[in-house]
Simulated assay, not measured.
Amino acid sequence: MPVPQPPLLLPHCGGQVRMESHIWSILRHGDWPEDLGAVRAVTPGTACLHLHPDPILFSYLLAVLEPIAGPDGTVTGVPGLRLAELDDDHAALAMAGGHGRLVLHTRAEAVAMWQADETDRAKERLGDGDRGTLLRHRATLHPAEVPHLLQATDASDVLQCVSLRRDLAGRPARHHPQALHHLTRRPDMPPASVPVRGGRDIDPALLTPVTDPRPSAACLGDALARQLIQLLGQGRIRPGDVIADPIAAVTRLGGRDIAARCTQQVIQHVAHRYGLLRHRPLRPADPAPPRQSRGRIWAVHEMAAHTMGLIADELTRASASS
């Protein structure tokens, strides 16, 4: 009779899902199934993943996951991933903003071996005239990373995260109490500015009605994105604040008729074109959304403070082309 397996523990943090999705997409092109034998223990958490790889796999994971921006604007590795801690017995990688963390536990000789390999690789890159930029210590996002992080977490990210954790599920577990609810960052990394206990409701009265008498959903979406960027810049709202009643917000912008027809299209335009909003699970201290929200709420994206300049440029281009 087969032994029942415990339920698969999945991340509750969108940044962790995105990070593990990237890890899976990078590793599946190598010898990942064989590499599983080199992972001696695993501790999955809702906001963190702890692995105990052997020294060779430790160096390999750091080499393939660290982001490098090429001169052609491409990024290899995991965009937004930073080396948050390096000690004699572990290396901790965290997503910019603090949402998502991978801890690789090892021995002191493995860390020393990786550091020696990194020195050799840096000399090789210099000798080859490689102009790629290592981003693992960069305090802010590189422009080449931003488009990747503006994309909303979707079903494919979740499926790849599930695949990674399912493959790791057969490895021995090792106790790391902080794995369950651990979010951390380096002092010089961009802070996670979303309050863990919930966001403030964005009052529709902060929005200014558009002057177009018959605006399209895209026109209203651009207007909403533009005004959210202005409010962020003025400090009147912050990343993590929520639009608890999207219909009221769109009514304020364009009137009841268009809000009744196009609210969902307007909000999705802001989320999908500009990455300024995301549809995240409700938190205990969030304002109550409409009953039909099914346990989710629209919130200003955590990375908005770091991408608002780029979004403003995109809005200017969209306005010029219309």
Score class of each variant (00 low, 15 high):
47 A>K: 13
5 Q>A: 14
216 S>P: 01
148 H>Q: 07
7 P>N: 04
27 L>Q: 04
57 L>M: 04
173 A>L: 15
322 S>P: 03
241 D>P: 03
115 Q>C: 12
20 E>M: 14
209 P>H: 03
145 E>M: 13
40 R>P: 07
145 E>W: 05
283 R>M: 14
41 A>H: 11
244 A>Y: 02
81 L>W: 08
195 P>C: 09
92 A>W: 04
152 A>I: 01
271 A>L: 05
241 D>N: 08
128 D>Q: 10
160 Q>D: 13
59 S>P: 05
220 L>M: 09
143 P>G: 11
66 E>Q: 10
258 I>D: 02
256 R>A: 15
133 T>D: 08
303 M>Y: 04
297 I>K: 01
186 R>M: 11
54 D>V: 00
192 A>R: 14
150 L>F: 01
31 D>E: 12
122 A>F: 01
56 I>W: 14
197 R>S: 15
260 A>F: 03
235 G>L: 06
25 S>I: 01
302 E>A: 10
207 L>M: 10
138 R>M: 13
25 S>N: 14
307 T>P: 07
93 L>W: 11
29 H>E: 15
163 S>L: 10
76 T>M: 08
97 G>M: 07
253 L>E: 00
158 V>D: 12
232 L>M: 03
122 A>R: 14
142 H>S: 09
276 L>F: 09
277 L>S: 01
268 Q>I: 02
170 G>W: 10
169 A>P: 11
308 M>R: 12
275 G>N: 05
257 D>I: 04
243 I>A: 09
163 S>Y: 05
183 L>W: 01
148 H>N: 04
93 L>E: 11
65 L>P: 12
59 S>T: 10
44 P>E: 01
305 A>W: 12
142 H>C: 05
218 A>Y: 00
158 V>Q: 10
230 Q>Y: 07
42 V>E: 06
